[in-house]
Nucleic acid binder design. Structure first.
Lengths: 232, 232
DNA sequence: GCGACCTAGATTGCATGCAATCCAGACCGC
DNA sequence: GCGGTCTGGATTGCATGCAATCTAGGTCGC
């Protein structure tokens, strides 16, 4: 992490994910380098890396832009996540330890307690829920014990909208998500790979449906692009 | 392609795939740059790109080496290919045109005609078969119409041993492979996504079994490392 | 004789200069 | 007035110099 290249990469990634950089924004090498107090070389490396992960698109001799997501992109990405995370759940079911299952159960339970739609949090405060959810999925992928799978999923990009996603969840959809989590835990504890895979696929495809509906309602794709906005 | 960076990338990739660079070989920036008549900058870019695709491993401050494949790597990679190419076949079944199906049928038929185990070629001449097979799979992925899926599969790396793989196929395994190809064509022509997906998964998993058996027999992992060897 | 430390060489990582490419605007011809 | 061309500015892509880091060998101490 002390490497400048990694710092630039992390900064750009965070900036894109939390909306500091809006869709289509130009990422000039000189500009970014000046902002982060480094030279163009590490910036170039970070941009190529982000490009291979799909977060930015790099055009030859024309620089990099923050990737714009179409409905089809969302659909394809979540279809891939459905089969890949399903595979991860199936693999995990065959080898996961009781300790890890307990951790997952705890995460699933905690997610309910921080769900704003259930009155445990101020309405709209989905930050903790999103973080717990990300960890839940990461633990399962880790329990699958496949570096290749983990790397492939990591390359599939956390959507820039992750946090905003939950805003479009109806209370019913959130309840279904919680139910899926608990069911996945049960399937893993039972060591039932086919069950775990099936529920995980349903879980991701349900998320896809919410996301697509949400995206469809976004007539004005206005990203919050406060140029000087600072987030932790 | 006129870009130096792309030329270096292509040269290194080809060199690794055809065995000119052996497993574990060190890829020093200066050395590669001198070999290809360029400077270190494009070499660095190419190495990072190959690293993100899994063909080489880059250690911080310690340079890049050609990735060594373990049995588990093979297993994980083919497990991923099985689900991803299965997904591709399912998607393709829903939208493929008759022309593309005809092309696939022609490829499947031609593969039989160039199969050395059937006496149509000198024994051991699997080059054409491998090329046709690669094209067959590429056409299906293309027909799936998902850029994300295509990119993910491309990142999953053509194994360095692709060509040598066929050498370990028994005539029965080759016959099964041909049968799978024809069955996939039939499933696509019928527009039956579930069928196409299932056969494709079987096809890839069968290849995995052959590869793992082959890898197990490789007591001496001697890669043909003729340092000055030139292939096409 | 064996092990730890220390130094020298080599290599990666970063910064910066120069050439090639691309985009914008104005100018000219029709 | 409109379209094509040409030039200027800016940006990317490549080459190279310098500093930081790592590996290897030798030396010193025990």
């Amino acid at each position: 992490m002390s490497q400048a290249s990694d710092r630039v990469y992390a900064a750009l990634r965070a900036g894109i994910l939390d909306g500091r950089y809006g869709f289509g924004d130009r990422l000039g090498e000189i500009e970014v380098a000046a902002d982060l107090g480094t030279s163009r070389t590490p910036v170039r490396e970070a941009l190529r890396r982000l490009g291979s992960e799909g977060l930015v698109e790099v055009l030859p001799n024309r620089g990099a832009r923050v990737r714009t997501w179409t409905a089809q992109d969302l659909e394809e990405t979540y279809e891939l996540r459905a089969v890949l995370e399903g595979l991860g759940a199936r693999r995990a079911a065959g080898q996961v330890t009781a300790e890890v299952v307990d951790e997952l159960a705890a995460l699933a339970a905690e997610m309910v307690t921080v769900d704003p739609s259930l009155g445990h949090r101020p309405p709209g405060d989905f930050a903790d829920l999103a973080a717990l959810n990300a960890r839940f999925h990461a633990v399962i992928v880790g329990a699958a014990g496949s570096d290749r799978l983990a790397a492939t999923l990591a390359g599939l990009v956390q959507l820039p909208l992750v946090m905003r996603t939950y805003h479009r969840y109806t209370p019913a959809a959130l309840a279904r998500s919680h139910a899926h989590h608990h069911e996945i835990v049960d399937a893993l504890r039972a060591g039932d790979g086919a069950w775990a895979e099936s529920v995980m696929r349903s879980h991701v495809l349900a998320a896809r449906a919410v996301l697509l509906a949400s995206h469809r309602d976004d007539a004005s794709g206005s990203a919050a692009t406060d140029p000087e906005g600072q987030a932790s």
